[in-house]
Design a binder for these strands. Sequence first.
DNA 1: GTTTTCATAGTGCAGATGCACGATAACAGA
DNA 2: TCTGTTATCGTGCATCTGCACTATGAAAAC
Lengths: 199, 199
Amino acid sequence: MPKRVDHQQRRREIAEALFRVAARGGVPAVTLRAVAAEAGISMNLVQYYFPAKDDMLRFAWRRMVELSVERATAEVGRALESGDERAVVRAYLAAVLPSDERTRLLAAVQIAYFAADVTRGGPHPDEEALLPHLVRGLAEQISLAQRGNRVNPALDADMEAGALATMAAGLVTGILGGAYTAEAAFALVDYRIAQLFRP
Amino acid sequence: MPKRVDHQQRRREIAEALFRVAARGGVPAVTLRAVAAEAGISMNLVQYYFPAKDDMLRFAWRRMVELSVERATAEVGRALESGDERAVVRAYLAAVLPSDERTRLLAAVQIAYFAADVTRGGPHPDEEALLPHLVRGLAEQISLAQRGNRVNPALDADMEAGALATMAAGLVTGILGGAYTAEAAFALVDYRIAQLFRP
DNA sequence: GTTTTCATAGTGCAGATGCACGATAACAGA
DNA sequence: TCTGTTATCGTGCATCTGCACTATGAAAAC
C-alpha cells in the first residue's frame, strides 16, 4: 500500500473550500474548477474524491448539517446539564443565529442551498429540514417547564415552540440581509423568552 | 414609424415566462433559450428587450416586488378601512405568507434572489429590504391598538412587531421547505395574534 | 530493488450558455 | 408607391462546465 490519505478528511477540506466559494458567489458559483482553485488542488483531485459534482454538493450539505448540529449540541449540552429549561431554550435559539463570521458563513451557505433546493433546480440534498428538529427540541423544554409551572401551563407548547423557532429562522435571514444586527436579534429572542417564562 | 409594441408590456410577458421556468426548473434553469421557448418567441427577441441576461433578471426581480406590493396593499387596504388593527395585522402577515401556487412561486424566486444577493457580499443593489417595512407597519398598528387598550400597553410594540414579522419570514421559508403547511402557518399566526390582542 | 497500488496532475471533448452579427418581414409616413 | 424604421428571426462563436481518459510520482509491500 502506497501513501494513504484520509479520504474523509480530504472531503471535509474540499467541503470547506466549497463553503467559501458558495458564501462568496452562491451555489451557481460552485464549479469543480472554482472549488479546486479555492482548495489549492487540481480539479481532477476533486473528481477523484467526488465521482460526480452532485456527490460533492451532497457531501457538503451533510457536512454543514453536521457542523450545525455539533455547534447546537455543544451550546445546548451545557445548558441541558443545568436543568434550566429557560437556558436550554435560549441555547437552542442562540445556536441557530449567526453570531460570528464562521456561523454567518455556514448560514449563508445554508440559505444558498435552500434557495437552490426550493427552486428544484439544483441538486436536492436529501435534506432533513432543520426547523422541525428545532421545534421539537423547544417544545420538549417548554412542556418540561410547564410541568414545573415555570411556563404557564395554559399555553400551547407546540405553538410556542413553533413561534420561537420560526422567529429564529426569520432572524437568520434578517441578520444575513442586514435588516437585523446580531445584537438586535438576541434582544428580540430574550424579549420573547422573558415573555414566555414566568418571572 | 412601423409596428409599435408596448415594450414594458412585452417585458412583463417575458418576466411571466421567466417565473414559470423558474417554478419548473429553478433559477439555474432560467436561460435565455428556456425563457424564450416558454414565452413562445425567439431567443433574440428576449435579447432585444433585455440587452443582457442580468437586465432580465433585475427586471423580473422588480416586477416580483411590484406584484408583491400590489398583493399586500390590496389585502391590507381593505383591512385598513375597517379600522380594526387586529385585522390589519393579520392582513400584513397573510400578505407575506405564500398561500397558493402563484405566491409560492414568487416567494421562491424572492428567496433565490435573496440568496444570490446575500452571497454577493456587497450591499443590496437596488433592493429595499422588505422586512423593515413589515416591522414598521405592524408596529404602527400595535401602537394604535395599545392606545385603544386593545393590546396590553405594557408590551413593547416594536419588539412585538419584530417578533411577528420575523416569525412570518421564518414561516415563509418553513412553507417553502415543506416544514410547514400554509394552514399550519396561518394557525400559528392566528395563535400569536390571539395572544397579542386582548379578548 | 522491484512491483504494485494509490494520490495527484494534464488534456481533450461534447454540450450548453450568453452574446454579437447579419438578415428579413411588416408597417407608418413621404 | 416608395422608404426608412422597427420587430422578429437564424446563425455562428468564444467561453465555461462537467466529465473521461491518460500519465506520472511516490511510497508501501514483497
